[in-house]
Design a protein around this nucleic acid. Structure first.
Lengths: 123, 123
DNA sequence: CCGCATCCTAACAGATACTG
DNA sequence: CAGTATCTGTTAGGATGCGG
C-alpha cells in the first residue's frame, strides 16, 4: 500500500500538524513532558515539579498529551487513588528535543537579559 | 571575575528563564524564528510564510524576539518602508532546535492521528 | 509597505469548592 | 489522592482605520 498523505507542514494553517504542534509546545506541555523524561510521575509529583501549574491546567494538559499518544496514564489503585503517568515511545522520542530547547534557554539566559538591558538603554 | 548567577531553571516559576522560555515557545515565535532560519525576510514575507498570523500578532512577536536578542530588525528605506528581519547569532543558535521540534511533529503526525483514532474508539 | 492604535470577543487560566 | 465543576478575571487574538 502507498501513503496517500502529502507531507505535513506546520506553516500551513490548515495542516493538522499545526494543532499537534501547539499541543506539544504549549506552556505546560513542554514542562510536563520534560518532567516525565526523568521517569514515571504521579499527578501530585508532577504538580510539584512543574512549579506554578494549577490542578486544572495540569489535568487538561495531560489529557491532551494522552490523546495525542505522547503520555500513558495508568490507574494503579482506586482507594486511595494512585495514577502514574509515563511517556509513550513517541513521547520518549520527543522529550530530548524539548530538553534541548530548555537547555538552550537556560544557558542563553544571561545573553538574553543582557540584550534586554542594552535595548532598554536606547529607545 | 565570577558568575554570581545560580543556574537557571525553567521549572521554577520565579526564574526569569521561564518567561524567556515562553517567549521562545510561543505559538507564533517558533514559526517566525524557523522561517527566519532560511534567511532574511521582510515583514510581508513573514506574514505570508507564517500562515494564519495577523499583523498585530506578528508585529508583537517580532518585538518580543528583538527585545530578547534573538532577531535583528533593520530599516532599509523609508518610502516605501522596507524592513528586514534576520536572526542574531543567538537566534541562529536557537533555530535548529526549533527546527528539530517541527520536524518531529511533522514526521510523527500519522502516529498522533492514529493514537487519537484508537482513543476515540474506546471511551 | 510597514506597522501602530483602538476596540471588541472568545479562549484561556487562576481560585475555590466539591466528589469518587 | 486525583481529579471535576463553577465562577471570574486576564490575556490572546481578530478587525478596522490611520500614519510614516
Amino acid at each position: 500500500m502507498s501513503t496517500s498523505q502529502q507531507a505535513a507542514d506546520v506553516f500551513s494553517r490548515a495542516c493538522p500538524s499545526r494543532e499537534v504542534f501547539e499541543d506539544v509546545t504549549g506552556k505546560w506541555a513542554v514542562l510536563a513532558l520534560s518532567a516525565l523524561q526523568q521517569g514515571p510521575h504521579r499527578f501530585g509529583e508532577l504538580r510539584r515539579r512543574v512549579d506554578g501549574v494549577s490542578e486544572k491546567m495540569l489535568s487538561q494538559t495531560l489529557q491532551v498529551l494522552e490523546r495525542d499518544g505522547l503520555v500513558h496514564r495508568e490507574v494503579r489503585s482506586a482507594t486511595p487513588p494512585h495514577v502514574e503517568y509515563t511517556l509513550t515511545d513517541l513521547g520518549t522520542a520527543l522529550a530530548p528535543r524539548l530538553r534541548a530547547l530548555i537547555d538552550f534557554v537556560e544557558d542563553a539566559l544571561p545573553q538574553v537579559l543582557a540584550a534586554r538591558t542594552a535595548r532598554d538603554d536606547r529607545p
